[in-house]
């Protein structure tokens, strides 16, 4: 028989193993992509797959020759950050009113907003394409910013709403009695308390915008094209070049991965720092 203590440590060992296994499974494709990006095209195809090889930068050099990585990256940054900012600008007041001034229809409104995400985007491709065309907004960053804002808005509002719901309304009422206007109540009390949650919401919105491919492929060609369009351009015209595709994908993921990595500490701290109770 195992003692209770032994049982506990065995249990935590098993849970630990399972966690590492799952983490490994999730991480492996990214690892493999980065690895492949440093192989020659030949090595990339080799069966069985090679783990030991002489790394080469030729794929990256090729990409640098063929396309202007920084122009794509700049588009991605601009579009993601602008869409996220715009999204928060709408989501904060919306979530504030729904979380703290609930009416009979609040729950229904929330569900309805989420239901718009159930529509497959391709269903509205035609009308949106035509609207963009007639407004002269094809291949414009503004079009993508507006569209990304709108498609992420429901999720962002939901997230901000749940974070706000955790904040006791008394604190806001205290601010109101202390003489705060609605704007001061939001900016000096609500937002600082919710900042951990808001930061993770913004990070999620950035990631969603950064990785969005459907609309960027359909509505941009060059001037406004973000990194997802760059990646796609490596998959079609010349057949599949795995190593080059991996290299360009690595380049496309890198900025957002680094951002996530950097903000991770702050996020965790922010999340626990805002704790009210």
């Amino acid at each position: 028989m195992l003692t209770l203590k032994q049982k506990r440590s065995l249990q935590s060992l098993l849970v630990g193993c399972a966690a590492w296994l799952i983490a490994g499974l999730i991480f492996f494709p990214i690892f493999w992509m980065v690895l492949t990006s440093f192989k020659t095209e030949l090595a990339a195809f080799a069966t069985p797959p090679q783990f030991i090889f002489t790394p080469t930068l030729e794929n990256y050099l090729h990409i640098n020759d063929r396309s202007d990585y920084f122009s794509y990256a700049w588009n991605s940054v601009l579009i993601s950050f602008a869409a996220t900012a715009l999204c928060m600008l709408v989501a904060v007041p919306a979530a504030y009113s729904m979380a703290f001034f609930e009416t009979k229809r609040t729950k229904g409104t929330l569900l309805w907003m989420l239901s718009t995400k159930m529509l497959p985007p391709v269903g509205v491709l035609m009308p949106i394409y035509l609207i963009c065309k007639s407004l002269g907004m094809l291949d414009s960053r503004l079009a993508l910013i507006v569209i990304y804002t709108l498609i992420n808005l429901p999720i962002v509002i939901w997230m901000v709403y749940t974070y706000f719901k955790d904040i006791p309304v008394d604190i806001l009422e205290a601010a109101r009695l202390d003489g705060a206007t609605t704007l001061q109540e939001i900016s000096r009390v609500l937002l600082p308390i919710a900042r951990g949650g808001l930061a993770s919401t913004m990070l999620l919105s950035l990631i969603l915008c950064w990785n969005e491919a459907f609309w960027s492929l359909n509505l941009t060609s060059s001037a406004a094209a973000p990194l997802t369009a760059l990646v796609a351009s490596y998959s079609s015209p010349e057949g599949l070049f795995w190593a080059k595709l991996s290299a360009v994908s690595t380049l496309a993921c890198a900025p957002i991965l680094i951002l996530g990595w950097i903000s991770q500490k702050q996020l965790v701290r922010g999340l626990s720092f805002g704790a009210v109770k």
Binding site: D170, I171, E173, A174, L177, V189, I193, G274
Partner: peptide, 11 residues
């Protein structure tokens, strides 16, 4: 007003 939950600004 003094609230039952104190309602202090936690930050």
């Amino acid at each position: 007003m003094v609230f039952q939950t104190y309602a202090l600004y936690p930050h």
